[in-house]
Design a protein around this nucleic acid. Structure first.
Lengths: 217, 217
DNA sequence: CTATTTGAACTGACCGGTCAGTTTAGTTAG
DNA sequence: CTAACTAAACTGACCGGTCAGTTCAAATAG
């Protein structure tokens, strides 16, 4: 945890079990996949520091050694897990991009897709909000990069709206994107945790209120 | 914050106790207060599970035993810490309530006050988003209660707006409140962590976009 | 043969919680 | 005024247990 890489003298590059290496399709991917799913679930529920590697291995139906064979460390596993989740989300958001002609409708679709993603990977959002915003934490760099990628997608959607409608230019674009981002996550998480009876449409509509307020009527 | 007394060792017989020597509870409160501040800072940065009781004690300038003298357990400390932070926030939000005549302006003040709170207690929001939304976690009950209290304040402000303006009734009130809540926290946290150059006014304006979208004009 | 996985042992550090003892402030008795 | 007393407040060494990370010989599979 302390990030102080021990490795005092022993620098053996060709030690064993290279954690990052081209892999033959078949089993390796499956193992990593199962480790991703198991960690996503556990870490999303109890936080990164609250889950042990042994638990993750057990949940994935794999031995502890396998975890360290596929990933260099617990920290590395989590970093790759974050990347993995964001990749899935990005693909989904890209899919609905330009599906509609109206930028506002396109935006609604995107928010809906984000909500659906949170339904399918409920633990990812928990992981995200749990570990993000940690002052110089272990994955600051990873989060900064992933955050930028997600905000870029939202940003381009907002850009399209701004190009097609008259909007309130006095609103800072960056803050607006953050607000949308935050509203999506918190509305989605709140629905899962406290108000499962609320529909996805309700949630999307509440988030889209931001965009309607951005427009000049 | 104001003390900053070094208190390096116990060679100072006149320093051990705070000025007020009227009642026993006076001392208790001072120690508890320091423990609150120390834990808020540390836990906000590294998460509840990532901070040790020894660290908290050291940061507060007391011994580990004192932590257990004042609180029953680490878990209890955190529960009380959450309550403490919410109480501060609630007092602040109540203060601006009804300060303005226009409900919308009043709402703007409230959001501004929330942002100011996040400036003053930057670690509290981190603690909140880190530990909230944990499926049956240790403080589920505490969070449920505190969340309700905070949402009630936001809700009454929204209610006032709805009473004074024509609003979009098709938007679910609960989801709207969650969106506002989420936008406040995430915009505030994002500003602190990634974009400190953004002003509080920008942030407030971005959040208030939600309310403008709620209005029918 | 080679890549991958297993399972278990091992370590070295760490952690939450405890407790017997110490300090301090306030009170009482002489 | 002060010595004795009391109880709250505080201390820090200590304990039982846990965890991340390492290593490796043997098994499995392509």
């Amino acid at each position: 945890m302390s990030t102080t890489e021990p490795v005092p003298s022993e620098a053996d590059p060709q030690e064993r079990g290279p954690a990052e290496k081209k892999l033959r399709p078949g089993r390796t991917n499956a193992t990593k996949q199962r480790l991703f799913e198991a960690s996503m679930e556990l870490i999303g529920e109890r936080g990164a520091a609250g889950v042990t590697v042994d638990e993750i291995a057990a949940a994935a139906g794999v031995s502890k050694g396998t975890v360290y064979y596929n990933f260099g460390s617990k920290s590395d596993l989590i970093a790759q897990l974050l990347r993995h989740g964001v990749d899935i989300m990005l693909v989904r958001l890209q899919d609905v991009r330009g599906q509609a002609n109206d930028p506002l409708e396109s935006m609604t679709n995107m928010v809906g897709q984000a909500m659906e993603f949170m339904d399918d990977y409920p633990s990812f959002a928990r992981l995200w909000v749990s570990e993000n915003w940690r002052t110089p934490g272990e994955w600051s760099a990873v989060f900064a990069e992933l955050r930028a990628e997600l905000l870029a997608v939202i940003g381009s959607a907002v850009e399209s709206v701004a190009a097609g409608y008259k909007v309130d230019e006095s609103i800072a674009r960056g803050s607006l994107e953050a607000a949308i981002f935050g509203a999506i996550f918190v509305v989605g998480l709140d629905r899962q945790t406290y108000n499962p009876e609320r529909t996805r449409e309700q949630s999307v509509a509440a988030v889209m209120t931001i965009m309607h307020g951005y427009l000049i009527k």
